[in-house]
Amino acid sequence: MDERIQNAQRRAIQYWFVDGLAELSAGVTSLLLAVLFLLWGELAKTRWSLLIFFLIPLAVSVVLRLVIQKVKQRITYPRTGYVAPLQGFENKRAVLIAAAFALLLLAVNATLAIQGSTAVLWSSSLAGLTFAFVFGWISYVTGLRRFAFLALFTAGLGASLGFLGAGYWTGVAVLCGCTGVILLFYGIMGLREYSRQTPSSAG
């Protein structure tokens, strides 16, 4: 009985990954970040560099969110129904995780600042660990193994890029690019399987 209850709760939490759209959205964002990081060398010469670096991903994420909502209304809600997640401080665990993540990022940046220019070479490793933390947490909460693979992949790739001496911008660009490609693959396969296997409700 308890297993049935646990499975029901787990499936509810997996709802946001059932149609592949979350991965598609994250994949597009990741690839965009990869392009921005690669172009940073040129962008940094302009006076609008910081604005471009933050505004473009923000604008794209807003547009993506609207597009995803439209697609969900056409594909997901008629098939699986609608679920609203716990938000903000309703979800105490999410708040704790977000706080831990923020502290991790702070520690990463402090490490880079203290170490100076030599630490730049290890930035890819630290970025990889940050990605791994996020994907590992998603895998733990949802029980979806593909995110555990992504966690291992990003940690390994980040470490490899650090050992190879890839510069910060190039290294993080490669990390974001590879992660984006995998996420897009997950998203496309997920959406295809979901559309085929989940019939639309007959009203």
């Binding site: 499936r11 509810a12 699986t80 129904g81 609608y82």
Partner: peptide
């Protein structure tokens, strides 16, 4: 069990 893990769910999902 489902509703305790999320904010709300519609009739179709349940």
């Amino acid at each position: 069990a489902i509703l305790s893990a999320i904010k709300s769910a519609d009739f179709l999902y349940l």
